[in-house]
């Protein structure tokens, strides 16, 4: 059931940084992905050709018969922004746990110590969360947090403002104060490729205003942060994301996660989730 629902969404299966042929797996199906710099193709083990779409510097595909539209990110094409695909990181966890961790700020002082947070600045101030029914997306707004080094382009500690957006069960977009341009948001997204219900590949992607850092430095900054997250994600028990509210205990700081879990359940997006207490 849950896989059937998941089949009709689009997922990233490669980045488009360099031409390549890549053997990978999506929703328990082996795939061969070819990207020659202009066009992409995605083929199943029995020779089935699946649709291939290039968006946000990644090759996306959909295995199901009735693809739901793939979301957009306006800022992707805004002049002056640097688009930074950060490469794929394989994680032994549910794809949904990877997205939920991306939506979480309370872990910054402990997991990203000295970069995205630091004791004693641990408090999560009240913020707003809602499901925007007209677009069927989860949004968290008015989020703020103290950060020692919020971005590669940030000189020192800053109070950072955030907005989070979940437009897809396995993708989330973060809009974040842009240190060199206070009137704009930096955009950081995570696109998650569900390999199976308990293994995923996270493809972080950014669209930033940063004229000084090299592409390699930006990728390295993001990868360092994501590798810290991986040490958490591979040690959460159970591996699947529990949707039964009795299984884990949230607080006010977890409102985004609570809304995300409810939204998944309501949508029937249960691939990678656990619906009943164990």
């Amino acid at each position: 059931m849950s896989r059937e629902h998941a089949l009709d969404d689009w997922y990233p299966v490669a980045d488009t940084v360099l031409p390549q042929i890549r053997a990978t797996r999506l929703l328990d199906t082996d795939l061969s992905v070819a990207w020659d710099g202009e066009t992409a193709s995605v083929t199943g083990p029995d020779g089935t050709a699946y649709p291939a779409e290039i968006r946000f510097d990644h090759v996306w595909t959909c295995l199901g018969p009735a693809p739901r539209p793939l979301f957009g990110i306006e800022e992707a094409d805004q002049p002056g922004r640097r688009r930074v695909p950060c490469g794929g990181v394989r994680v032994r966890c549910s794809p949904l746990r990877a997205v939920e961790n991306f939506l979480d700020i309370a872990h910054f002082p402990y997991v990203h110590t000295g970069i995205l947070g630091a004791e004693p600045h641990t408090e999560v101030f009240p913020y707003e969360v809602k499901i925007r029914e007209e677009v069927d997306e989860v949004w968290a707004t008015k989020v703020s947090f103290y950060q020692p080094q919020a971005a590669k382009s940030a000189g020192g500690a800053t109070d950072i403002r955030y907005e989070y957006r979940v437009p897809h069960p396995m993708a989330a977009v973060l809009y974040k104060t842009c240190p060199p341009r206070p009137s704009e948001w930096d955009v950081i997204a995570i696109f998650v490729q569900p390999v199976s219900e308990t293994v995923c590949i996270a493809w972080p992607w950014m669209a930033l205003f940063d004229d000084t850092s090299s592409q390699a430095e930006l990728v390295q900054f993001q990868q360092e942060i994501f590798l810290q997250d991986r040490s958490i994600l591979e040690n959460q028990i159970p591996a699947g994301l529990p949707l039964d509210p009795r299984m884990e205990i949230p607080t006010r700081a977890d409102l985004t996660s609570v809304a995300y879990r409810r939204w998944l359940k309501r949508r029937g997006a249960l691939y990678g989730a656990l619906t009943e207490a164990e």
Binding site: N235, Q236, P242, E248
Partner: peptide, 13 residues
């Protein structure tokens, strides 16, 4: 139990 009741993280870390 090796599990934080909040988000299931192994407490042994």
């Amino acid at each position: 139990d090796n599990r934080c009741p909040h988000r299931g993280m192994r407490l042994s870390h």
